[in-house]
Amino acid sequence: MPDTSDKYARIMILNTKQDAADTVKIVETVKTEHVEVLALQEVSWSLLDRLASAGIADYLPYSVAAQQTWHDNGGVNVLYSVAPMEDVKQNLIPVESSSVPAATIEFAGTKVRFGSVHPFSPRPSNQGLWNRSLDSLAQLQHYDSLYVLMGDFNSTWDHASLRYLLGGRFLDSGEQAGEGLHMTYPAMLPVSEIDHIVHRQKRGRGRP
């Protein structure tokens, strides 16, 4: 069973591919893997309804969906949690490609601020939006919450914009684990690592 009294958070990210994900399988994975925080991208309101029907609230009863905007990148971003959420926001920081839902969740006395993110892909028509989105997320380096940003960043370590986002404050959790690359895209034969979990230490000023 999930246990937020220990020092470990079992977290999961998934791009639902514009409503195409199997919601029953998502709930089954949450159950069997004892997921405590789930970040979803490209979520539609009908998918949220299907997740509810599949029983997601039996395992992750707390949630926040991003504020819907005209420029949503395939759908909204969503966070689910096994534990109560504090300081919940539908739009943590202005990100032009898709709003970032965020909430603070306590694990063993430590409060961690989670966000579900999804910048546009760096296609020629979206290049400016992609750069501005990653630059906006990089501003979180200057605030004092203990952030964990989870999602489809549409970027790899080869992209200077991702390295700028990480800066001297954020760390790529997969890279820090020392397990090499974790290929995530495309789903059937992944050859690229564009989905990431990044975290940072607590120091800085203020907080959004």
Score class of each variant (00 low, 15 high):
M1H: 12
L92E: 09
R207M: 03
I194V: 12
A102H: 11
K31N: 09
R207D: 08
N154S: 01
G174S: 06
N131S: 04
D152S: 07
L181Q: 13
Q176H: 12
Q18T: 08
G174C: 06
P208V: 07
Q201F: 15
V76Q: 15
R169H: 13
T156F: 14
V198Q: 09
Y80Q: 12
D152L: 05
E33T: 04
A20P: 01
N73L: 08
H196N: 09
H159D: 11
E193G: 05
E86C: 06
Q68N: 05
A160L: 09
F170Y: 07
A102R: 02
S133R: 10
P94N: 11
L165K: 02
N91T: 04
L171I: 03
H196A: 11
P186D: 11
Q139R: 14
R200L: 12
S63K: 11
D58H: 10
E28S: 14
L189F: 11
K202W: 08
G74Q: 01
H142I: 01
S44L: 01
N73P: 00
V27W: 09
H199D: 03
V198W: 05
E33R: 14
G204H: 02
L166H: 00
L162M: 05
K17P: 00
P122M: 01
R50T: 06
H118R: 03
N77D: 02
G174F: 14
H159F: 10
A160I: 08
R132C: 00
F107M: 13
P94H: 08
L60C: 09
L47G: 09
Q41D: 05
V76L: 04
A138Q: 11
A21K: 09
